[in-house]
Design a protein around this nucleic acid. Structure first.
Length: 257
DNA sequence: ATGGCTTGAGTGTCAAGA
């Protein structure tokens, strides 16, 4: 089973890239963030033609998440229960006996800002919810754009980013608290080359200079971590014309026949 | 030098992203 996550920064603009990527890699599940589409405008027909069913939860201009899958997806949630939030950042579904939680974490803007406080509260609420979810469903994947670079290895210039948004200690602590529920960061299950990132700023020729951060993640609960065979970042779509600023991340799980 | 690009909304230029 191949499962992937990709912040597309507008599905309207990126639909051709997504369709090409599905055709090339044939993931069983692809979770998208920042679709920036109202549900009535979601390109269901084009995605169905590519051989995928799709669940989506969006809004005008900002945010928006979707789950594309080859197998049917049973809806589970479109928000963190008991957390009042206008922003469409969560989509959970059951696919083939696995609970998939697709998350677009808040950016946080700047350490100490209102948006930063919202980010930390949002992550705390997500953590509480997943603590309960893991009691009900042992096979659980939390993936998406976390907007957190977990440690120095995940940052092109750790000194320059020290204490900054996406790298601050409270954000990293929140990431560790989430992982401590029992997850594994699938990327770190394997020996990885250095300087692998999933996001590069559009400015300053950041991609060409590999000035990036690893902020998109696939976390696996124990029965899934034990069957994970790889986790890789595909930089190829970032090289295309009008790319998303994020690259897709894909994990392979191998189940006994 | 706190900018630099990209998107959406909308037709001015600004908010937001990370």
């Amino acid at each position: 089973m191949k499962i992937a996550t990709w912040n597309v920064n507008s599905l309207k603009v990126r639909l051709p890239h997504v369709l090409d990527w599905l055709a090339a890699h044939q993931p069983d599940v692809l979770c998208l963030q920042e679709t920036k589409l109202e549900d009535k405008n979601f390109p269901v027909t084009e995605i169905a033609a590519a051989g995928y069913t799709v669940r989506y939860s969006g809004q005008k201009t900002y945010n928006g998440v979707a789950i594309l899958s080859k197998l049917a997806a049973t809806p589970v949630a479109t928000a963190i229960p008991d957390f009042i939030d206008e922003q469409k950042r969560i989509l959970a579904a059951d696919i083939g006996g696995i609970r998939i939680v697709n998350a677009y974490f808040p950016n946080g803007q700047a350490v100490g800002s209102d948006k930063y406080e919202y980010k930390l509260k949002w992550i705390a609420a997500l953590t509480q919810w997943l603590r309960d979810q893991l009691k009900q469903q042992q096979k659980l994947i939390l993936l998406g754009d976390f907007n957190i670079a977990p440690d120095a290895r995940d940052v092109h210039d750790p000194q320059a980013w020290k204490g900054q948004i996406l790298c601050s200690e409270p954000e990293r602590e929140a990431f560790r608290a989430l992982v401590a529920l029992g997850f594994s960061d699938s990327f770190r299950l394997f020996e990885q080359p250095g300087k692998i990132f999933t996001w590069w700023d559009y400015r300053m020729m950041a991609f060409r200079r590999n000035m990036g951060l690893r902020i998109d993640h696939i976390l696996l609960s124990p029965p899934l971590a034990s069957v994970c065979r790889s986790c890789t970042v595909d930089k190829a779509p970032r090289k295309l014309e009008r790319p998303s600023d994020h690259a897709p991340v894909m994990a392979q799980l191998e189940f006994a026949q």
